[in-house]
């Protein structure tokens, strides 16, 4: 069966998950509906406690849904867990799996045995993956002596041992420093690009990471999917106007002439601190809100008539955080955002 005719990589219908707890049960997932196509790089973006990990646990057969159904490549997570476990793998952020006394090479070989890979083939694949993730120098180092970033590279290599058709990454850069997080992201992208059809489900609360990596994403909060789409589609939900920042050499007579132009919703000159002590700026910044991008042509012509020259032009786009705020009415604090988040 080719991938073009294969079932969805992920097909979740009305998935709900409630944890028993005292004094009251905790609803981790309200009704979740999700479709991910084979070969897609899909992200789940949401704050801590949004239900992302619960959904991943259900899809990786570690947890049963309280109600609803979920299928991975057509296999039911509740009944066909054996099949799903053969074609998937999972790597989580902050994972400390394995045995500290083993060397990097030995640890990976041990995990390769859990996927039935022959002993010799296992060693060969382990060496390849070690090279791939850049742990050559740590090949015979004890796992207990690895740094956090090296440890996560090791986890990533473990996750690739069975060459999964679907790879679940649960906050994979959590707690990593900037360069280690970047290295992990590059590995993910490289692995995904090597073979068409590889599917990745990534959960993260790092907005920039999701935006950088994912073709489509779902914004999740309090067990609900609030919106699904490409990053551009989601941003368009909050971008009702095209926002431009113009830097001009001069603008005599204020912004009145610009505001009168067709398609210009607003034009304003923001206040900004002096360039140097007591010295005014040599340029003028104008913030323009346009009904659409096409109105920019009229603005440029009009500026020519006003004898103003454009020094710089920048289009301002909403971030996924803006989308989240629009959807939820609040931002989400992501502890450690500054650590592993892409720059």
């Amino acid at each position: 069966m080719s991938l073009s005719t294969s079932p969805l990589a992920i097909d979740a219908r009305d998935v709900r998950r409630v944890y028993k707890a005292k004094p009251a049960p905790i609803v981790a997932l309200e009704t979740i509906d999700l479709e991910v196509a084979p070969g897609e790089f899909f992200g789940l973006l949401g704050p801590n406690g949004a239900g992302k990990t619960t959904l991943i646990k259900i899809l990786t057969t570690l947890l049963l849904p309280t109600s609803g159904s979920a299928h991975v490549f057509g296999f039911d997570v509740s009944r066909q867990h054996a099949q799903i476990r053969r074609i998937m793998n999972i790597v989580s952020g902050g994972e400390q799996s394995g045995y500290g006394l083993l060397q990097v090479r030995e640890q990976l070989w041990m995990f390769s045995q859990f996927y039935g890979i022959g002993a010799r083939e296992g060693w060969r694949r382990v060496d390849e993956l070690i090279d791939l993730v850049g742990l050559q120098e740590q090949r015979v180092q004890k796992v207990s002596s690895l740094s956090t970033g090296q440890r996560q590279k090791l986890n990533f290599a473990r996750g690739l041992l069975n060459d999964p058709w679907i790879f679940f990454l649960d906050e994979p850069t959590l707690g990593l420093d900037v360069s280690a997080a970047r290295a992990v992201r590059e590995l993910v992208v490289e692995w995904k690009a090597a073979v068409p059809g590889r599917t990745i489900l990534l959960t993260s609360h790092y907005m920039a990471e999701v935006e950088e990596l994912c073709e489509r994403l779902a914004i999740v909060d309090r067990g609900r999917i609030l919106a699904i789409g490409t990053p551009a589609e989601l941003k368009r939900r909050v971008q009702r106007e095209s926002i431009f920042e113009l830097e001009l050499d001069r603008l005599d007579g204020g912004t009145g002439a610009l505001e009168a132009l067709p398609g210009v919703v607003s034009a304003s000159v923001p206040s900004r601190p002096d360039a140097a002590e007591g010295q005014p700026h040599r340029t003028v910044i104008v913030n323009l809100a346009l009904a659409d991008d096409a109105a920019l042509g009229g603005v440029v012509s009009a500026l020519g008539g006003l004898d103003a020259h454009i020094v710089a032009l920048k289009k301002s786009e909403p971030s996924l955080e803006d989308v989240f705020i629009e959807l939820v009415g609040r931002g989400f604090e992501a502890p450690g955002e500054a650590q592993g988040a892409p720059r």
Binding site: M1, L3, Q83, I87, R125, A194, V195
Partner: peptide, 16 residues
């Protein structure tokens, strides 16, 4: 590719 160790052509084949 060193990334590829997959003898089957579809996830359905690989899962059985």
């Amino acid at each position: 590719s060193p990334y590829v160790h997959r003898p089957s052509l579809s996830p359905q084949d690989a899962a059985e």
